[in-house]
Design a protein around this nucleic acid. Structure first.
Lengths: 251, 251
DNA sequence: CTTGACTCTGCACGAGGTTGCACGAATATT
DNA sequence: AATATTCGTGCAACCTCGTGCAGAGTCAAG
């Protein structure tokens, strides 16, 4: 077996089992532990795993946490959520993105008429457990734990079969020229896909997200129907968005 | 198990339970208390926890969330869950049904190796948000709010594409002659479908569910590979199931 | 074909990490 | 105050690590 082949297998094993034990790997390949240790050292140098006494563990321990962000759920977001929920009409189908802003919408959803909510976030779905009139469609797929949304081909496929009237999009940044963006490539792709399937897209923005940009672009700001921003933002920061044809609502 | 992995697990346990008791942790890892104490000392030196007589507490003041959450699931179910989680092997794919019994499994899932969990319950998916090594596949569909699981053609279709090694089935009743049953027609159908796709099916039964029947039959008890029942049930109530070829584990 | 440079591998050895045990000190519990 | 846990330390046994070294295999130039 080629050395590089063996290294691939080691990484494979690490992905499968979440750990490498040098001794066991040596047995498995019928090689000395020395060789395995050398492999592990090389792979660790490339940043592909983390070396620990006795073997190795996956490189990226965890992305910074979602719960931490969730607890920051503020008064501002609640107000934005109420405003957003007000856009929904009886009988419509709305798609809720994952994230704290859209969770605020879920909590504010109208309880006096029926409509359908689709979401790829189990967290959002859970919020709706006790909602009396909302029909909930859960989109499945490989769960991306960082932001707790279903992703991948399966999710894309299920979304493609829908035509939501409204999509409430969560973003980490919005910029008149650089568009809407988020921190993760895969997330950006799925958000773009949902927006493409939806009749209208609406996003909620706190002041810190306005006129900022994150690594992965979702789409142009002009593709939005409406953005709901927090109250008290100077008018001149909003006009560029209005110029793009976006309805800006202050809450 | 690797030492650094154990330290991660200790921190994890601390997050989940709000405390570490050295003695109990030692039993859990089958190691001497000395080793655990040494771990705790190391972790305390890194500022990741606070050392106290008898164990350790979180470094930062706790979120009020945990105790409330844990008290929901009864002691019996927690024991059944631990036993069930012990059946999982590295690299396997397991399907978790919705319900409180399977939620107990989710909480007890092994954290020291990687495997894949599929579920049609957003609640269960949420439980796994902070699981370090589990890959989670969410099955989508129309959400059935009564039991919070995805149902309907879309769910059936996604499930049909999978071949889980293990299915942890939730039921409301089991009977040697009348089989496994539950309270809802649609639920029964989807449970039957998942079981048909899975290599083995396992169910968890508290005493009150044993030798009972609910309105909608899922399948014959003989289709089970294994049932995990609470401890202290008279042997003569278990033999009929054993006669059907079911492995009965007491927990 | 030979030679020399290079890589990969296993072995030997010393250094250092990990664990369980023993013992006396420190700390709860009654 | 008496008793029972728990703690920290030193120690021995064992495991793992890194390094240097030698043998085997590969490759290309001479």
């Amino acid at each position: 077996m080629l050395t590089s082949q063996r290294k691939d297998l080691i990484l494979d094993m690490l992905r499968r089992e979440g750990q490498i034990i040098a001794k066991r790997a040596a047995e498995q390949f019928s090689l000395s532990e020395d060789t395995i240790r050398r492999d592990l050292r090389d792979l660790a140098a490339e940043g592909l795993l983390r070396r620990v006494h006795g073997g190795a563990l996956p490189a990226s321990p965890e992305l910074p946490d979602f719960t931490a962000r969730r607890s920051v759920s503020s008064d501002v977001k609640a107000r934005l959520g109420v405003q957003a929920a007000g856009l929904i009409r009886p009988g419509q189908t709305v798609f809720l993105d994952g994230g704290t802003s859209t969770a605020a919408i879920a909590q504010a959803l109208p309880r006096d008429f029926a409509f359908t909510v689709a979401t790829h976030s189990p967290t959002i779905a859970g919020e709706l457990e006790h909602h009396p009139t909302a029909e909930v469609i859960l989109i499945g797929g490989r769960l991306y734990k960082h932001s707790m949304v279903a992703t991948g081909a399966a999710a894309i496929e299920q979304i493609a079969r829908m035509r939501p009237d409204l999509f409430f999009l969560g973003v980490t940044a919005a910029h008149p020229a650089r568009g809407l963006s988020t921190g993760d490539f895969e997330e950006a792709a799925i958000k773009r896909h949902i927006a493409a399937c939806s009749a209208e897209t609406v996003t909620l923005l706190t002041a810190d997200k306005l006129d900022a940009a994150s690594p992965h672009a979702i789409m142009s700001a002009s593709a939005l129907s409406c953005m709901i921003v927090q109250d008290g933002i100077p008018e001149e920061r909003l006009t560029p968005y209005r110029a793009l044809g976006v309805t800006v609502i202050e809450a």
